[in-house]
């Protein structure tokens, strides 16, 4: 049985903001199915009472001294932007005109 369907891949691509092509959907669905079937073995491990590890460094609440340090200028921060306007990132419209 397939672990993941073409429709699911299409849904995930939309959630991921990837405008995938029909051809990619066909290919990815097959490939992701192979990958998922391979990683599904992880379910065999009895781990109900095991705490999760998010990363390996046992630090919490990392602070630094409250000393101001230089940061990027507005110009530097905008230097890589595809489009900028009056010192801001310019983005395509977010709302429809009638909204």
């Amino acid at each position: 049985m397939a672990a993941i369907s073409r429709e699911e891949v299409a849904h995930l691509a939309r959630l991921s903001r990837l405008a995938v092509t029909e051809e990619e959907l066909d290919r990815f669905a097959g490939q992701l199915d192979v990958i998922l079937q391979s990683v599904a073995r992880i379910g065999e491990v009895a781990a109900d009472d095991i705490p999760p590890t998010s990363h390996s460094v046992p630090l919490t609440n990392v602070y630094r001294d409250d000393v101001p340090v230089p940061c990027l200028t507005q110009e530097e921060a905008l230097s890589g932007a595809p489009d900028a306007f009056e010192g801001r990132f310019r983005v395509p419209r977010i709302l429809d005109e009638e909204d």
């Binding site: 405008a19 990815f28 490939q31 992701l32 977010i94």
Partner: peptide, 24 residues
Amino acid sequence: SLEEVMSLTREAGFGPEVKRRIIL
């Protein structure tokens, strides 16, 4: 729209392995 531009940008800018891993 912003969402359409984002989706087209990411579709054009990412290669196949990156897309596979994002979806996975």
